[in-house]
Computed example of a mutant assay.
Amino acid sequence: MLNQINIMDILRVAVEAGNEILSVYHSDDFQVEHKEDSSPLTLADKKSHNTIIRGLAALDVDIPVLSEEGKSISYDERKGWEYLWVVDPLDGTKEFIKRNGEFTVNIALVHMGRPVLGVIYAPVLDVLYYAKADVGSFKLENAKEAITDATVLDKKSVKLPYKRQDGKMNVVASRSHMSPETEEYVAKVREKYGDVEMDSAGSSLKLCLVAEGQAEVYPRFAPTMEWDTCAGHAIVEQSGGTVRHPESNETLRYNKSDLLNPWFIAKQKGFEV
């Protein structure tokens, strides 16, 4: 099934969804509602979601979709899915409302609980991160222009991770969800490595920074849902890193009965505390 999917098609769907988000972002009509958990839901979420659903439905593969907007699908129905798309049409809604640009479109393909393809698009930055199992992870800047031609895509995509030249140790953490457990973990990193810089970022961009090599580790000791992490997990893993539970050391799994993720640590290959 994975070999039947052209990554270019998914990149285009993500960019189209990002364009729908930007049509709201650059207007004064946010239409902020509130979900049951009191987090904001915007017109941009809905427009992006509809674009992604249409785009995935147009592919030559018939794969069900699990998204934040469709989380009511019962596990009795989902548990028989060998493959599924896991989608967050607008990850970082709070960042969107703040208009700081740190929000993304997340699209991932899961096979038997494992993310095997991931695409993350940051519309304001016009940057794509993408990965496919056994192919690797890549970063693409000026994405709208590059995805018009496969030759341009191959030429301009940069394989991840980068090799850091500055010798610095960076930890990336959530801008909105810092916790005492995260602070304790960062203290342990500093105890082992000495001078450590702290970076903050919104949405799945934190996972992208690990995959990219701009941060060695991203400890997440706060709630996330499967659609928040699935695409980024694929990108980290295909860059050589891991996304694992801090105590069991088990890799995060997807399409679980409970769609809430456990705590996790995303890190580059070779990083240990």
Score class of each variant (00 low, 15 high):
residue 3 N to L: 09
residue 11 L to P: 02
residue 12 R to T: 09
residue 16 E to M: 11
residue 21 I to L: 08
residue 21 I to T: 07
residue 27 S to A: 06
residue 33 E to M: 13
residue 37 D to F: 10
residue 38 S to W: 09
residue 38 S to K: 14
residue 45 D to G: 05
residue 45 D to W: 05
residue 45 D to T: 05
residue 50 N to W: 10
residue 59 L to H: 06
residue 75 Y to W: 14
residue 77 E to Q: 13
residue 78 R to Q: 04
residue 98 K to E: 15
residue 104 T to Y: 04
residue 112 M to E: 15
residue 112 M to F: 05
residue 117 L to P: 00
residue 122 A to S: 11
residue 125 L to G: 11
residue 125 L to F: 14
residue 127 V to I: 15
residue 139 K to L: 12
residue 142 N to K: 12
residue 144 K to V: 12
residue 147 I to P: 05
residue 148 T to S: 13
residue 152 V to I: 11
residue 153 L to W: 06
residue 154 D to N: 14
residue 156 K to C: 07
residue 158 V to P: 04
residue 159 K to F: 10
residue 159 K to S: 13
residue 167 G to A: 07
residue 180 P to C: 09
residue 181 E to G: 00
residue 184 E to H: 13
residue 192 K to P: 00
residue 200 S to G: 11
residue 202 G to D: 06
residue 203 S to N: 06
residue 207 L to E: 03
residue 208 C to H: 08
residue 209 L to D: 03
residue 216 E to W: 12
residue 218 Y to K: 05
residue 219 P to K: 02
residue 220 R to M: 15
residue 220 R to E: 13
residue 221 F to P: 01
residue 225 M to I: 03
residue 228 D to H: 06
residue 229 T to L: 12
residue 237 E to K: 15
residue 238 Q to N: 14
residue 239 S to D: 07
residue 239 S to I: 08
residue 244 R to C: 11
residue 248 S to F: 09
residue 255 N to I: 08
residue 260 L to T: 15
